[in-house]
């Protein structure tokens, strides 16, 4: 058996064939035109697992061109295994693209679970990886029915669910993937970003694109667009609380920042420690602090 005759020697720029990119691009344009609506697309298999960011990756590969400056993060970190893996794959299949860890330098940011702390600019696009694209799935398992509910902007069952939470716990217990209404119509699952990041979608200067590979959906929050977490007037939306027992805001152990989303972990001596989840934000603050010392 001779395989040499058809052994592939190189992959297309961006791995996907050009037809696959065209389909994703058409879906992206419709997603932007109908903010928050989940546009179905075919979703090709990528060489990493469904659930590892294949939806985000297909968006990135359909957007990216030579000269792009790309940042890939996972949990806010550029050095997380999954971020490294995705970045290496993009570097391998997209010659001419440069990568950065600096949020400010990036033109395209692919992220899982976080939106950078530094406000994004109008020259940047953020691509978020989405495991569950539909906020209604908790109240309606059938997609056929959910599509009609979305079309009619009928979110009454979702609101009832939130209300039941309040009755039972005196709090809305949704921690991340907080249902967010876009441009007064569609409610999206904003991907598993913490509630901390949800307000960043509201009238952002940058375009946010969401890609769900396994569920085969693309949706968008355009710049300068309303993105409002679902709430009741008497129970405000609250982001994660980083105050200690005495009510003082905890600060990052490393850079001292007291207004960023913090990762909590236990250090070698068994002490609970807090650090910025956004590694670039932390590095920047640390550099500023060090400059302050040496100056």
């Amino acid at each position: 058996m001779n395989m040499t005759s058809h052994t592939p020697t190189a992959y297309n720029f961006g791995f996907l064939d050009e037809y696959a990119k065209k389909e994703v691009r058409r879906a992206i344009l419709k997603a932007v035109s109908i903010p928050g609506y989940q546009v179905p697309y075919a979703s090709r298999e990528m060489p990493m697992g469904r659930g590892f960011g294949t939806g985000g990756l297909q968006l990135t590969l359909s957007l990216i061109g030579p000269g792009e400056v790309l940042k890939v993060i996972d949990q806010g970190s550029d050095d997380s295994v999954n971020a490294v893996n995705l970045r290496q794959f993009i570097e391998m299949t997209c010659p001419g693209v440069s990568t950065t860890t600096r949020t400010a330098e990036a033109t395209l940011i692919q992220s899982r679970h976080r939106i950078p702390e530094r406000p994004l600019t109008g020259d940047q696009i953020i691509v978020l990886q989405v495991p569950y694209p539909d906020a209604l799935v908790v109240v309606e398992p059938s997609e056929d029915k959910r599509k009609i509910m979305h079309g009619e902007a009928d979110y009454s069952r979702l609101l009832v669910k939130l209300y039941e939470d309040i009755v039972q716990f005196d709090e809305i217990t949704i921690s991340h993937r907080y249902p967010t209404r876009i441009n007064g119509h569609y409610v999206i699952d904003p991907s598993p970003i913490p509630r901390w990041d949800v307000p960043k979608l509201h009238h952002s200067r940058s375009l946010a694109l969401f890609g769900a590979g396994r569920e085969k959906k693309i949706y968008a929050v355009p710049p300068h667009t309303d993105a409002e977490p679902l709430v009741f007037t008497d129970v405000p939306f609250r982001v994660e609380d980083f105050r200690d027992g005495e009510g003082r805001r905890r600060a990052c152990e490393r850079c001292g920042c007291a207004d960023s989303f913090l990762d909590e972990f236990v250090d070698g001596s068994g002490e609970k420690v807090y650090q910025c989840s956004d590694s670039d934000w932390c590095d920047e603050h640390l550099a500023e602090a060090n400059q302050g010392v040496t100056a």
């Binding site: 997603a31 609506y37 546009v39 179905p40």
Partner: peptide, 8 residues
Amino acid sequence: LGTLASPE
């Protein structure tokens, strides 16, 4: 114009 379920 699309449909309510599939406006795209």
